[in-house]
Design a protein around this nucleic acid. Structure first.
Lengths: 225, 225
DNA sequence: GTCTATACGTCGATAGAC
DNA sequence: GTCTATCGACGTATAGAC
């Protein structure tokens, strides 16, 4: 929608020198979020932290929202310990690690939730398409992992991989929010899903006799999911 | 949770005549949401739709946010077909019905998401405590239903009811958002969870041979969950 | 008690000078 | 590329009419 190359989210006049400055802005901005929370993070307060006027920021980003999205992308990208190597492991494993890493970055879940909520609004074309694509991509990745697990026999085969993927994303997002509001909601709750997704239990002879206290909540969910 | 006392969210000077006017405001406000989306719903635009000045609204509600929370509560309350009778059915059933009803009210999920996101912010004491309590209450109700299902043998007993409840809330909230962004994500995905929660499958002899296409995604999840 | 009028400070965004 | 100036709209607060 902008210059010669549209696919990047908030680029404007961005060559060589520009991208470096742009990166500076993003790095400083996430710190402002950590300090003051996402809500009070106006263009002006970010600009102040950088020692420039707020209008200057709009030379690098088309709007406040696009700056915020870029900040989120940046923070999330550098959240990955290993820079590139695609995440390894089953779908639940990946999500548990991601969720744990997310809540470590102050303000990140707030920022994400705010942006997602805003993306639901009617007029918000940019945010809407960004998160629509993002959700689709994440679901695609997870669905692949689910199918892998099913082929391996780690995950029960009588559920649709795409639907499980959507479920996993929803559960992960929702649990991070609940955890922020009330840390007694343990993030490991996601692993309960691993238990549920596990294969129909080793064919043992007891049907349902005295299903004791042996909760599978924090033990290994059997195979690596 | 409503009348005879102060724990109500946004009451100010409110007797007899006042509460009626207050109700008018809430009813009209949700319509504004339906028409213009939650985002553009400023105090001033709601006031305009009511034909009053925006300052007038602050006689009934302490702040914009408390008005929005009250609007949400009001819309959600009248969303229930049967006015009082506590919801019947298993945990998944209840959630599926609620989710379906939610997305029918234009702007309601947007409003909810916006308020939840705002409640995560540091300074927001009112919103934070409201949603913390709300989540706790909903989880409590669902956990009871889960335990009931477990006692009845409808739900596998090797998972913690509280954790399943948190999972259900998260999944429901998250799916509504994903559905709004991309209706190809079916709300019925929640019922996949019902399948997963079902008892360990009737003890049949086939271990895992040719797990065919028989997806349990939209059929009955066996018992009523 | 209900409401209008008005003012304050801040916001995102834009235009134009340097 | 960055500034200053300015715009309209916002949430909030207060004074005072009825």
């Amino acid at each position: 929608m902008d210059d010669p190359d549209p696919p990047v989210i908030g680029r404007r006049g961005s060559y060589a020198k520009g991208v470096a400055r742009r990166q500076e802005i993003l790095d400083r901005a996430i710190e402002v979020f950590a300090e003051r929370g996402a809500y009070a993070t106006s263009l002006r307060s970010i600009a102040q932290a950088l020692g420039v006027s707020h209008a200057a920021l709009l030379h690098y980003f088309d709007s406040r929202e696009q700056l915020l999205i870029a900040v989120y992308e940046n923070a999330e990208a550098k959240r990955h310990a290993v820079p590139d190597a695609p995440e390894q492991g089953g779908p639940v494993d990946v999500l548990v690690r991601a969720a744990a890493a997310n809540v470590e970055v102050p303000g990140l879940v707030e920022l994400y939730s705010t942006l997602v909520a805003a993306s639901l609004e009617a007029g918000n074309i940019t945010g809407r398409s960004y998160f629509t694509e993002r959700f689709a991509r994440v679901r695609r990745d997870l669905a692949d992992r689910v199918r892998g697990g099913q082929a391996r026999g780690d995950i029960r085969a009588d559920v649709d991989a795409e639907q499980v993927a959507a479920l996993l994303v929803a559960a992960s997002d929702g649990l991070q929010i609940q955890w922020l509001l009330d840390p007694s909601v343990r993030l490991e709750t996601l692993e309960t899903l691993a238990t549920l997704l596990g294969p129909p239990a080793a064919p043992s002879t007891d049907d349902r006799s005295a299903a004791g206290d042996q909760q599978a909540t924090d033990g290994q969910p059997g195979p690596r999911l």
